[in-house]
Structure formats: C-alpha cells, structure tokens
Design a binder for these strands. Sequence first.
DNA 1: ATAAAGCCTCCAGTAATGGGAGAGTCAAGT
DNA 2: ACTTGACTCTCCCATTACTGGAGGCTTTAT
Lengths: 274, 274
Amino acid sequence: MLKIGDFPKLARVSVKALRYYDEIGLLKPVSVDQFTGYRYYSTSQLPRLTRIIALKDMGLSLEEIARLLEEDVSISHILDLLHIKQGEIKERLEEESLRLTRVEEWLKQVEKEGKMPDYEIVLKKAPPQKVVSVRATLPSYGDTGTLFSKLAPYIFEVGGQMIGPPLEIIYDEEFKEKDVDVEVAFPVAANVPAKGEFKCYDLKGYDHMATTVHKGSYDTISAAYNALMRWIEVNGYQVAGPSREIYFTDPNAGVPPSEYVTEVQVPVEKVKGK
Amino acid sequence: MLKIGDFPKLARVSVKALRYYDEIGLLKPVSVDQFTGYRYYSTSQLPRLTRIIALKDMGLSLEEIARLLEEDVSISHILDLLHIKQGEIKERLEEESLRLTRVEEWLKQVEKEGKMPDYEIVLKKAPPQKVVSVRATLPSYGDTGTLFSKLAPYIFEVGGQMIGPPLEIIYDEEFKEKDVDVEVAFPVAANVPAKGEFKCYDLKGYDHMATTVHKGSYDTISAAYNALMRWIEVNGYQVAGPSREIYFTDPNAGVPPSEYVTEVQVPVEKVKGK
DNA sequence: ATAAAGCCTCCAGTAATGGGAGAGTCAAGT
DNA sequence: ACTTGACTCTCCCATTACTGGAGGCTTTAT
C-alpha cells in the first residue's frame, strides 16, 4: 500500500492532483481509512495513472479521459474521440501560427516606426443593406459635404428612416485628386421613392472586407488606406471592389476634426494562384 | 453616444466582455448615468477597442494589454513584451505539434491493434542512488529469486535500511535465454560494509530514461521491452546503457502474478547525426 | 516524548467570460 | 398616457484543473 505522497515519486503528478482525481472519480484509492481519511493506493494503479497522464499530455480533458477509461468503451468510440482531438490540435496549431505572424508583423512595425501601429486591420463581413444614395463626379473629396446636405433633406422629405451612419463609396480604381467618382449614402429601414439623382436600392454586401478605423481629420485618411493596402498585400489578398468610408462622427456635433472617427472598408478576396 | 449594445455591431466583441473591460478598467465608458447605471460609449473609443482586440488575438492577456495601453509606456517595453510573447507562442507551437504526434501515434496503434496500447512510455530522470547489490551470471531469468533471497538477509544482517523497491540491472546487450548477466540491488539509506559478492556503491544515474510499467507475470515482460524499443526508435533515441527493472510487488505478499507491477527502464540518448 | 513531516478538509483564487435571474429603463407604437 | 418589447443594470454561479494556504490530525523519526 502506498500513501498519497509516494505516488509523485513514481509518476509526474502532484498530491493535489491525485486528491482531485479521487474527487472526480478518475482514480480512486484502493482504500481510505475511515477514521483518518488517509488515502491508500496500490502499485497496481500505476498503469492507470500513467495512462491518465499520457492522455492528458495529448490534450484530452479529464472528463474525456474518464470516459475513455470506462470498462466498456468501444474501439470506434476511442478512434472517434482521438480523431476529434487530432482535428482540434491541428486547429490550434493553425491558430497559434496565425498568432505568431501577427505578433511578428507588429514587432516589425514597432521596430521600424518606433511606435505602436496606428491602424489595426480587421477582416469582417458587410451584409447587404438598403440605402438611399446619390452618386456624382465631384471636383474633389472636400466637396462630398454638398452631396450630404442635398441627400439628408431629401430623405427627411420622403419620410425615410435612417438606421445607421452615413457612408461614402469611392468608385475610382486609382487615387485621384480631382474629378472623383463618389456615391454618398444613408442606410434606411424601408424603401423610399427615388427621384432624379436620388436612388434607393440594396447596397451589395461582401463576405470579406478589410477594415480599419481612422481617428482624425479626413485630410490624413490616406494613411488608413496605406495601412489597409499593405495588410492586403502582406496577407495574400487583393482588392475586390470599391472601397467605402463610414462616418461615425456628425460634423455638426461640434467635435473638433482631430476627434472624427471614420471606418475605412475595402472589399477583398484571396489572391488565387497562390 | 453609443449604448453598450451598439458596440458589438462595430467590433467583434460581446456586451459581457465590454462590461468586464469596464470592471477591470481596460476600457471605461465615457459616461455612466449615475441613476440608471447605463454605460455610454463614444465612437472615438473604437480605435482603442480594436487595438485591444488585436492584441488579444495575438495572445496577450488583458492585464498585459492594459499595461501596453498605458499612456507612458516606452517602446523598449513594448518590444520586450512582444518578444516574450513571440517566444511563448513558439513554445506553444512546439508543444502542440508534440501533442499531435502523440495523438497520431496512439491513433495508429489503436487502429492496428484494435485496442488501447498496453504501455505508456514516460521519459524520466533517474538520479544516482546508493545500493547494495550482487551481480552474477545466472542460467536464466527465473533464477534471480535466489539472488534476492541471499541479498535481503545480508542487508538485514549488516543493519542496512532499504529505502525503495528492489531492482535488477540487465547487462546483456542482447536478449539471452540462458547465462544471463544480471545484478540485483536494493536502494539503501547509508553505506553498508561490502562482503564477498555483496557490494555497496552509488548506482549511476541517467538524465534520460525511457520507462514503462508492466502489469502481469514476468513471463510477458518482453512486451514491455518491445514497446520501449519501438518508442525509442520512433522518437529518435538510442539505448545508452543497461536496462533496469524495478519490482514494485513483493512476491511474498500473496498477490497473484497477474497483478505484479514492474517498471522497466532503459537509459537513452538522442541519436546524433540527425 | 517530542519534533518534523505528512496527511486531512475546506476555502479562495485563477482567466475571461457565458448563462440566467430579477429588476429597472428606453423607444416606439397604439 | 399606456403598453409592449427590446435593452440594460447588478449579482451570482459555472467553467478547467488544479495551486496555495489555514488550521488541525496522524505518522514517523529521533
């Protein structure tokens, strides 16, 4: 008979762990002194214990181990569980290596720029949404304000209900200083009559949008695009449609431009042939 | 101003998580209604939130993130933390791939043999220990009993104090049926006079011993050796000394041979040139 | 006989939430 | 003005596989 403290000498377990295994019924001592409560084990329990440890080292939970060590467990059951575990481990491996690349990417940037990266890129889904919009070719980006100030009153006039922040869709494939082709839109709850240049339709959704949040004046928003484009290239994506900007800050709210918050979205797809 | 439920629409985060971040001071709402307790956030907190999520995705704990987002944290501090994280992730990657090979090895065995493996192999350290022993060439393994029955009374006679189960060291490099060169030993607490064939010395320790536990009659112990040798080959080790057997069961205790428990140990070293 | 070491139970804590109870609040529609 | 339904609040419990510690017996060694 062994006392609980003898086991740690034979296998890589702690006394605390053994007490816990007793509690959950995974490995019960062969006898327990009914007066002192002392647990007594037998060397013949050593194989079971080493098996428990081996399975634990494979990443199985104690509950799963308990199930596997039941007397009447079938082979196919064991194989099933192991296959599932195999899948889980592979998943975790991928997750970790993704993590590693993310950390290394950050590390590179911090080392190069001497500060924290300004933009975090998030891949998200953009569901389709009903919008009221107006599209036009404007002399410059600074003029989109005029579109908004035409669009908003129109929506109000026809009783449309805005259900989200306004957005802008930039159709130019390359960056242009002048004569920019943009669409300005408001998400709305229900259809609204179109009139002249004002359209109402279901704005296309995308499964993969690379997005980032820009804080500050619109003048500096190209930095957000730079960060996005870099991310897209590094991660093996390519641009798959016109980009969007979502304006979380109402310019009439008296907030200084340095506090403006804008989300920039670029639809992307994995580069094939790689 | 955003209510707590508006944030999950902008970032991949749950309401519960936001409340927790508030509690631990990682991301506090810009205002809290002092009567209703409602939390109100601002879109300008979005960059901080996305940064939190980005760092979380890299495997940093919330506490580490909080430290990184302090105002006055230095670049070298950031770099240090990231380097540490990088190391941790690499470690975990290795751990997981070790796990994967273990699971796959099991899977192979279970598929081939239609049952759970009989032996778990554990790599452990064997510290040097003082022993009293007798070495002899015996006609067969069945005769080691005679050595024990000479050795035990001698130790008793000279007042030696046994501090562990008896062991046997097998010196033959290859398996032999007859004329086996074995040493039988008892760990003792302190030096004991040697006499004739009875020696007392410090038995060599090994840093790496591949070990397994055999339950059953000694007749079937070769299965344990087979399992060990297979493991040694599969895992890129080679035998580095004479193997040992440790007898946990006292044959005089009235236990049937099918319940005998023996640990088999083989010193190993990594195969070089690979 | 005494001291040291070992054992017992019970409690608290871990990391980052998720689930749910019970109660209060808000916004929209009648 | 009222009702409904969607939100929100706090508080508590649960998760995993233990570790650490307090306070109190029991065993072993000297």
